[in-house]
Each structure stands twice: as C-alpha cells, then as structure tokens.
Amino acid sequence: MTRYVPVMGMLALTILAGCSHHAKPAPALHASAYGSALAVSSGDKQLGTPGAPLPQPLVIEVNDDQGNGVQGALVKFSGPAGVSFNPAAALSDSNGEVSTNVTVGDSSGRYTVEVITTDKKGKEIPLQVNELAAGYQEMLGYEVQKKYCSRCHDPNSTPEQVSNYGNLAVAPHPFDRGNTFNKLSDADLASIISHGGPAMNLSALMPDYGSTLSKADIRAVIAYIRLVSNPPFQAPGMVYATR
C-alpha cells in the first residue's frame, strides 16, 4: 500500500492544482493607480429582462480627492446569485471610467450590484448600484404607463414625445419618486388611478382611468411604480394581530 502514497499524493496535487488554476481570473489585473471615490457615470437603474444583459453597459468613474478621473485603478464588480459581469474586474481608462456589461438574474426585481476599488492604503471603497429586471407584470406596467401616463409623469422631453410635465399647474410625481409613492398603499394607488386625483384629495389634473384601463393594467402600473421607486419600496408583508 505504502508505495502508492506518493503516486496518490501527486494525483491529488495535480487535481488541486487544476482546480485552483481554474478558479483564477484569466488575466491577472494589477492596479497602477488608486482612486479615492467611485461614482456612477451611466447605466444604473436600467430596466432589463430577467436573465438577459442590460441594454446599456454600466459605466463607473474612479476619482481622486479632487474629483478627477484616475487611470489604471482596479475596479471589481459583484452581485447576488445569478448576476454576471463582463468583465467582472477591469482597470479604469484614461477618463477614469470602467465599463461592464451586466446580466441580471432569472427572477424579476431589484438587483444591487457591489462595485469595489481600493485606495492607496488598501482600504476598500464600495459603491452600490441598483439595476432592475422587469417580469411580465412590471413589463406590462412599463408599457401601459409609457402609453397613458408618461406624457405627464415623465419630465424628460424628447422630439418624439414632448413632455407635458412642465405645463401642469400642479406638477405630477415622476414614478421613481419613492418618498411619495412608498407612503401610498397599493389600494391607494389603485384608487388614484381608477378615480383620479380627487379620490385622495390630490390634484384634479390627474384624470380617472378606471373605465379606460383594466384592473390588471392598473395592477401592472403599480407593480412598475414599486419596481422603479427610489428609495426602494418595502412591501409591508403580512400583518397579523398580536395578543
């Protein structure tokens, strides 16, 4: 038996070596510079499809103390299970920017992505970025609000769709305004959409859509509002009577 030990040891070592080699990132990246702050340049809060890459890359800026871009800083991306990055780590370019393509997980909802770089002392500088994946209901809600609501609720004006936001005596709330919408329950939101602003003592400029949209459409718009809300919406969960 004893004469097999070295052979088996070699075998085990080979397997281990193979495994460890596999786990390493393909090209080792070495930071040549260090930043002191991270900022989102573009590509956060994108609305994507579950399991698919987001339409735009996520671009992160590495800045020094003066707020100038740092070239050559190592930035690493990580996220919850199912989220993948291409690349997962990269060095910042001459503008101090790092770009990665994010693929969100298979279920709908909010994905919080962790972005990390290190400063000169080796201390980690974290940044959290949110990306969104719309399931069937949220996607339906997105399409319904795009057709019926966004002309007034979306302040962004394009030549294709001129916003009516600024023309209204009482400005509507953009749908990502969590501080407003998170205080309203689903039933309240449904009531405002169905019966108009006056139903909740709000602006009469918001008309009633209860005879125009189906109940499913209204539920979908609410689901969309919950998804995009910033700060994020916390579902109240089940409330039980306590003794």
Partner: peptide, 8 residues
C-alpha cells in the same frame, strides 16, 4: 386604444 380616458 386612444389614450383619452373615459370619464364616465
């Protein structure tokens, strides 16, 4: 399909 809501 018109977006003008039906105001009843």
């Amino acid at each position: 399909g018109t977006i003008d809501p039906n105001r009843n």
